[in-house]
Amino acid sequence: MRERLVQARNLGLAYGFYFLLLAIVIVFTAISNSFLTVSNWTQIAIASTFLLSAAAGLTLVLINGEIDLSIGSIAYVAATVVFLTSDMPATVSIVAALLTGLAIGLFNGWLVAYLGMNSLLTTLGLMIAYRGVALVFTEGTVKQTGEGLALLGSVKLLGTIPAIFFVALAIVLIFQWILRGTRLGTYWLAIGNNEESARKIGVPVRRAKLAAYALCGISAAVSGTLLAAYLGEITTFTGRGMEFQAVAAVVIGGASLFGGRGNVFPGTLAGVLLLIVINNGLGTRGVSPFVYPFVAGSLIFLAIYLDAIKNRDVRSVS
């Protein structure tokens, strides 16, 4: 009997947020005529795209037991690069933006993995610094992207779903494969479990962490680039507050803030959808938009609380 309860609880801890997502979809469908419609789900797909593409990379860093709070600012810097290259062909803009993300990711990773700096405070500081750099170039005003990129941003697939959503989805799937299908991914999980043991056993800890940050930088840059392409312009709001939403989505999706466990697919994807669907559902019911931060914040708290409970169990066992 007691074992049953424990099993049920573990099941709840592991899959609780999937059930919650399902329940929320059902509730919103029941109480709102406009929720389960093609046009509304197209909206949800678009709104998910930017958070999803950034959260995918953050998942990898979190699995290493580290964090990158500068992802929102990296997205803004990448979007700024898109603006600076707006006279050039779209491909040049894209490549330049992604390379910028890669470079920043490598820098973050170097600070954390090689210099041993605390990732939370380091990337918190850099979050402000990177945003500052972008503001210097955009002068804090709205800028236009090149026409070619704006055109790409408006491409639709399968009827009404914008292509940019599939870009984000592709990143999720690729990162999931790297996590579970490659040596690098196994190293990340091992590092997140126990960095000291990983080092002793011969895992190249520093290089593996550097790679996670590099991919995280690229993933944040993709987010910024997609947003710029979709809007056809670069706003100063690009990526603002995204780091906390992304952390929430990743943790809701089952990754641990303590490292060592988590998945990009379906975990982080489900986490992002949950946040976005709640926001959207409240919107379609005409609930005041000021309610959303409270709901999202409570959800984040709940996710982190449950993460602590899960990890307390694991620690007391070992």
């Binding site: 299908g181 490659t182 040596r183 690098l184 196994t186 479990n193 126990n194 002793k200 060592g260 070992s318």
Partner: peptide
């Protein structure tokens, strides 16, 4: 013991010598 709780037994055994799969960088699980 040095071990990684959330990894599988096989992954724990071969963490430093994972066999390579067909795709580049992949692990032959």
């Amino acid at each position: 013991l040095l071990y990684f709780p959330s990894l599988t037994v096989a992954e724990n055994m071969f963490i430093s010598h994972l066999p390579t799969g067909k795709l580049p960088f992949s692990v032959d699980k």
